[in-house]
Amino acid sequence: MQALIFGTTGQLALALARQVPAGVTAQHLSRAAADLADPAACAAAILAARPDVVINAAAYTAVDRAETDEAMALRVNGDSPAAMARASADLGIPFLHVSTDYVFDGSGTAPWQPDDATGPLGAYGRSKLAGEAGIRAAGGAHAILRTSWVFSADGANFVKTMLRLSETRDRLSVVGDQTGGPTPAAAIAAALWRMAQAFHAGQGAGGGLTGTYHFAGAPDVSWAGFARAIFAAAGRDVEVADIPTAAYPTPAARPANSRMDCTSLETVFGIARPDWRAGLDEVLAALRAPA
């Protein structure tokens, strides 16, 4: 199986590169090879490569900056994935795309179902939702995988931020009224490879696998609870004080409820929710390892 992957340096792209399954050839496209700000170039790259499956592991992820840069966020997260999906549909190959809990408004306390009504609170969520709509409209075999609170030993993420702050502080105030499932990038990569292989094997004849799925770590936790777990696992003596979202204003509103029902992913692909605590231990071990 030949896989074409958009993204080279992000958390997910790096995790995908580390986990290429036996019998799979993976070609990663950098920004120089296919700029996500240029939808036509992204489509052309797919048509030129003619792979067996396309995975989009790249995105505009600057949630706060998107509030003043929505046109670019929409181009990268909306227009380009739609163009990728149309090119994939033209070739008759599956397109796998990663989306986000930010497409929901964060109301209530029940886990979000894949077919629940969406209602993004800000520009980033709107741009990702536009990408989902464009992918579905392309009419080809596809899987949209919504996830949340991604972390790894690479790039910038909550785990690394907490560890950095703990170097100089013994008490931190962290938002305690937003709840979701932290998700290791390595687990997302493993899920995408399994999904790609299922599509390639023709399980469900493509159409039986096409759809929108949720994938988030378990158990659900608040940001403050996640911070406590990070410090405990890292052996850092840091006190965490819960604060409300209102006490930590940001340019973009965050959903209070990011719980996600992942049942359909397990039913269709046999992929269960990962335990983020095990993923956290692996990330901390990687960060402690010598360079």
Rank of each mutant, 00 (worst) to 15 (best):
L145N: 11
Q113F: 07
T109Q: 15
R136T: 13
T147N: 04
G106Y: 00
V159G: 10
G106K: 01
V103L: 03
G131D: 04
D105W: 09
N157P: 01
V150E: 10
P111R: 06
G119D: 09
L121H: 03
W149I: 03
G155D: 03
K128W: 05
A133W: 09
A153F: 10
L145P: 07
L165V: 02
A117N: 12
Y124P: 00
L163R: 08
E132L: 10
R136L: 15
A110G: 13
S107R: 15
S148A: 14
G131W: 05
T168V: 12
F104K: 11
D170I: 08
Q113N: 14
S166T: 08
V103G: 07
K128T: 06
D105R: 10
L163W: 07
D116L: 02
K160W: 00
T118D: 08
A123L: 00
R171P: 04
A130S: 00
V159N: 02
R136M: 14
S166V: 10
N157H: 03
P120T: 06
D105S: 10
V159Q: 00
A133V: 14
L172Y: 07
K160I: 07
T168P: 00
K160L: 05
S173T: 12
S173D: 15
S127F: 06
D116I: 05
R171M: 11
W149S: 12
P120W: 06
A130D: 05
L129M: 00
A123E: 10
Y124I: 03
L145G: 04
T118I: 04
P114V: 00
T161Y: 13
R146P: 01
W149T: 02
A110D: 15
T118R: 11
F158I: 03
A137V: 09
R136S: 13
A110I: 04
E167F: 05
R126T: 02
F151G: 05
R136D: 09
G140V: 12
G125H: 04
S173G: 14
G122F: 01
